[in-house]
Amino acid sequence: MKNPKNYQEYQKNKKREKIKIISIQFLILFAFFLFWELLVNINFLNEFLVSKPSKIFILFLSYIESNSLFTHIYVSVLETLIGLIIGSSLGLIIAIGLYFSKTLYKILEPYLTVLNALPKTALAPILIIWAGTNMKGIVLVSVSLSLIITIISSYSYFQLTDENLIKLMRVLNANKRQILFRVILPSNVANILAILKINVGLSWIGTIVGEFLVSKNGIGYLLMYGGMVFRLDLVMMGVIILALIAFLMYETISIIEKSIRFRKHKHKKTIIEE
């Protein structure tokens, strides 16, 4: 960037830079689809294997017309959100419990380590049998993916809380609940949001794997069905929609993150009369 002469120019430069980046990002996306279409049309790529954007778009329109696309999206998003919320909040609550009972943590540590190392998708068939071959089963798979890692990472973040602040609270005779809500949780807001961001991806893996195994609806179902009948346009459409929704969910958390970070700077300075 050029060296700005004054603040106005600095802002102008910044805005120009931002527009430049966003336009290039869109350009890359557009070029990707354009080349895909072209390469299929000149028979460089096999349409049977990769389908092509125009066909996917036509399919997309027909799914919108029949309204079934929204059902699929709704089902998958719902399963993922429930999985994300249960997995993250339960994980956080357990981590808080462990933080206040070091003995319990020491007892459970090897089990947590094993459960964390285990590929949770391997458990998916069992979980579905236990919880039922319906939405409950899929949600449980989704929960299983984010739960353990949430416990382990929240716990280690809690451990890193500034000891001096905890000492201050102890000098003030604060009880555990006060220490938790006034120091440990507030000082870990950014960390909890970072965990949540990771959990969005994990919950989606759980949902899609669950839907692969048992489902009548959902994006995972579309992918599975499309693959089985060699409808690659259907699979590609599923993947593109999935990418879009996952991106939107991730961005939502980023926006929450930013709003928390900027809240205090927006805060209006009220001056107490002298």
Binding site: N164, K167, L168, V171, L172, A174, R182, V183, P186, S187
Partner: peptide, 26 residues
């Protein structure tokens, strides 16, 4: 009263809220 080596002010609270902390906890 106990005063530490570090100021130990909670960064997410305003000066006023920080000062009220002890009274609120007690």
């Amino acid at each position: 009263g106990y005063m530490f080596q570090k100021d130990n002010l909670l960064p997410w609270l305003t000066v006023y809220k920080n000062i009220m902390l002890g009274l609120e906890i007690k």
